[in-house]
Each structure stands twice: as C-alpha cells, then as structure tokens.
C-alpha cells in the first residue's frame, strides 16, 4: 500500500517537475529515518520534501496531485463511472469512500457528507485532514474540466463549497462505457 502511495507521488512529481526533481526527492526521502510516524506519513513524506524544495504550500501540492490523478486515464474512467454529469457526480460523492474501498481496501478515505445549501453543494469529510481535503479539491477541479462544467470551488474550514456556474461550459472529455481503460491505475 505504502508502495502504491509512494509510487503515485513519485510519478506525480516526475511528470510535473521532471525526472531530476523526482530523483532529488527520492534521495531526500531515502535519507529519512525509518518510519516511527504512521506509515502513510512516511509514504507521503516525499510530498512534504517537495513542498519545502519548491517553497510551495503543502496544500497546494495536494491539490495539484488531486487534479493530476484525474488526468490518469484509468482513474478518470473510474471517476466518470460515478456520475452521468458533474451535478450527479457531486451529489453521489458520498459513494466515493465506498468505491475507493472496493478498489483498494487499505486506503482509508474518510467518509464524505454531501449537503445542498444556499444553492451550492457542500462536501464535508468526516476527518479534518489537510491531505484528503486538498486532494479532493484538486480532484473536483479536474473532474469539472473533464465533464466540461464551470464552477467555483472554495475551502471553508473543514468543508468544501462548490458553486456550479455552467453545466456545459465546455465540450468535456469523451467518455464511453466501453472505452479502453489503459493498463494500470498508476502510470
């Protein structure tokens, strides 16, 4: 599991910042002491090192990671199976943790509460963890693009607010049920 998270982060850094940068982070991580902290903390340490080296806030990197995930074709397809349009996708996001568990039982995605209030959709993770919250924000941005919707996404303490301005702002990327998913969920 750790390996999967580690590999995902490495691939994300490589494709975003280049091979040399990814290698530098791998070296940073290698010199780190063995994990006494929770193991996922060790697996995600690469992202913290990268944030430091890039002088970028860690939440921003998590967000980029979330958006990057939606551009991995097999993952994008799995997400598209979860809603016929962006509205449907958002309203059914409470299924996301269950779906994630179906794919990888060891990934502990926090439960998500979906509310509609003030004309906006509110998503509240059951645990206030920066990582998950910002990965989700990135994921939402990526999927809005994918569906061709225009929306405003903002973070309010532990919740995420989504205002949809236009459901069919752009063409959206093609999705067919029978399309070829490509080989693996991590490049």
């Amino acid at each position: 599991m750790n390996r999967l998270i580690h590999r995902t982060i490495t691939e994300f850094l490589r494709s975003t910042y280049g091979e040399d940068f990814a290698q530098m982070i791998r070296d940073d991580r290698r010199s780190m002491a063995a994990p006494e902290t929770p193991v996922t903390g060790f697996a995600t340490a690469g992202l913290a090192f990268a944030a430091e080296r890039l002088s970028k806030p860690l939440p921003d990197l998590y967000e980029d990671l979330g958006a990057w995930l939606t551009r991995i074709e097999p993952i994008r397809r799995l997400l598209r199976f979860s809603g016929r349009d962006f509205d449907d996708f958002l309203l059914r996001l409470d299924e996301l943790p269950g779906r994630a568990r179906l794919v990888l039982p060891v990934v502990d995605v926090p439960l998500l509460q979906v509310d509609v209030d003030d004309g906006a959709i509110w998503l509240t993770p059951s645990r206030p963890e920066i990582g998950w919250q910002h990965i989700l924000v990135g994921l939402l941005r990526g999927m809005a693009d994918d569906y061709g919707a225009l929306c405003l996404i903002s973070v309010h303490e532990t919740a995420i607010r989504v205002d949809i301005c236009d459901h069919s702002f752009a063409e959206g990327r093609q999705f067919t049920l029978y399309g070829s998913p490509g080989p693996g969920i991590v490049p």
Binding site: I75, L78, V103
Partner: peptide, 21 residues
C-alpha cells in the same frame, strides 16, 4: 451495470499494478 463495469475496470487496474510490483 455501472457498478459491475466500475469493478471490472478497477479490478484490472489494480491487478496490473500489483503484477508489476
């Protein structure tokens, strides 16, 4: 049907990664 298709692709994706590992 949607859930079955989801599972099918998810399963393939994970198996591919695991076999590569």
């Amino acid at each position: 049907a949607m859930e079955l298709m989801f599972l099918r692709e998810a399963n393939r994706g994970v198996l591919h990664v695991l076999s590569r590992f």
